[in-house]
Each structure stands twice: as C-alpha cells, then as structure tokens.
Amino acid sequence: MCRSKWSLFIIVCVSLALLTGYGLAQEKPYPTKSVTYLVTFDPGGQSDREARRQQPFLEKSLGQKVIVDYKVGGGGALGWSELVRSQPDGYLMAGINIPHIILQPMQQQTGYTTDQIIPVALFQRTPLALAVLKTSPYKTIQEFIAAAKVKPSDISIGGSGTFSGHHVATLRFQKMTGTKFNYVPFTGAAPQITAFLGGHVNAVFGNSDDLVKYSGDIRVLAVADENRFFGFPETPTFKESGIDIVESIDRGIGLPPKTPDYIVKKLEAAFLQIAKDPAIQEQMKKEGFVPLALGSQASRAYIEKMTGIYKDIVKDIKK
C-alpha cells in the first residue's frame, strides 16, 4: 500500500513534469503581432525592393502586418549587429547578404559573427561577371588575361569596396590566372558603373542585375556562376574557360541566435512559398536576378562552404 502510494505520487509528479515540460515546449502561437522586416541597405536598393515585393505575400501567409524598417550603415553591419542583439521571438528579421555577413566579421570586429545569424532562407542571387565596354579591344576572356600578362597591374578593374564580393572575385581571378590587376574600389554599384561607362576603369566585376541594364554598351567576358546566365546566354562561364571561380551576391533572410525552431520553420515556409512562385521568379529574372529557394538547412550549409573558401583569400589580403 505504502509502495503504491509512492508510485502513484511519482507517477503524478512525472506526468505533471511531462505536462509542464510539454507545455513549455508547446509552441506559442506565432505571429500574434506585426513582424518587422529589417532592411540593412538604403531604400531603393536591391534588398529593399525585394523586401517590398515580398511584403504583401508575407502578410497574407503570416496573417499579420509586416513592417519594412531600415537600419542602414557600415555596409549592412549596423543592421546585422542589431539583429543578433535583439529578442529571439521572431518579431524582428533582417535581410542578409552573402558574402557580406561572412567577410565583414573576418575583416574586423563588427558587432556580430557569421554563425550568430540563423539563416531562414536564401531567395535570390546575382552572379558576378567580368565586363568591358563595347569599345574595348578585349573580345574574349583569354585576350583579357593575355593582355594582363603582358602589362601586369596596368589594367584596372572596378568593384564595390574592399573585402567585398567584387574584391574577392578579382583576387581569386588573379590567383588562378597568375595575373595582376589594378583593383579600383568604389563606394557602391552606382558610382562603380558610372565610372565604368565613362571609361575611367578598363573593366568591372559587376552584379548581373547591374550589367543587364547596360547590355547595349558593354561586353561581358565571363560569368562567375556554375551555369551560363540567362541574361547573357552567349557569354561563357569562368569554369568553361578553365578558371574555377563562382562568385555571387546572395540575398536572404535571417533571425537572431536562439530563435526557436518552430518560428524558423514557419518563416522558412512563408519565404520559400514566395520564392517558388513562378510569377515572382519571372519578375526577378526580368530584373537580372537568379531566383533561389534555399531553406534554412541548405542556406546554412552554403554559408559554411563559402566561409571555408573565403578564409584563405582573406588571409592573403590581410598579410
């Protein structure tokens, strides 16, 4: 009797514990209020336009208002350091850009680390491509490389900033072809392209969507992607020319560290649903973006892969 009393007590305790434990793990309904979508670049830029495109669809699938907010500064670093310091309750998410979130923490203290950000999804990429003006003497990537070998450091390549995708692409290109270029950094894509069209630099590593706009004036020598880019179907990839460079700017969405799994899943589903919408993919393509639909796990794996590649290159810059 005594024993059964105790066992009853234990059973009650255990089941209570289980219940409360279950209760704790129980998913709180999400979202119950408006969700903030933080854009870390200027309004009107690619990240902002994508957020604005997604906003109405997100509101529909989440059933709550989505507020697009801006935290601009430090090439995105300011917004991302705010992201990793905010509550992991799913009510603040931020657009993320690769390679920015990998390269910035490698360069210096920026207030966040790459692995602090939980990637939810990646939904678009702009492969980089090497381009010259139509009037330029270089017709193919081989001619370009040959010319660079004749006069090292004489040919200038314009890009956006240092420790950026454009800079890294130039360095990888130099390393793989044994050439040396004069890399001229600009403060963003707009001044970069303006200087390029004005002939102030000989070539650029540009984002595909920027280059598509000027396809009448420029000649794209090679695209740094796995496959040919639909905007320039005639242009070979670097890989086809035997140079193993795949470089792109990828855009996605991230959450603060320790965000519960069910929130990540819920947002992942919402974003992937939009990313897989054929009408939206068609729009993206028209603007020069490659549509993507990578979920949380796949995005994380991709970030880890790229981190490995960048580690060695950054070592080269820093020494």
Partner: peptide, 22 residues
Amino acid sequence: IGLDPLTGVTRLTFGSMELMAG
C-alpha cells in the same frame, strides 16, 4: 568617424556600434 567607405575599416569609433554607422 565610422566605416571608411572604400576599405570598410572602422575609424575613430572607439568600439561603439553607433559610431560605426557614422
């Protein structure tokens, strides 16, 4: 004050995140 727009190096920010934005 803030990030050098070309190299992205932090300047005169004394470790402050707010100053990093310039």
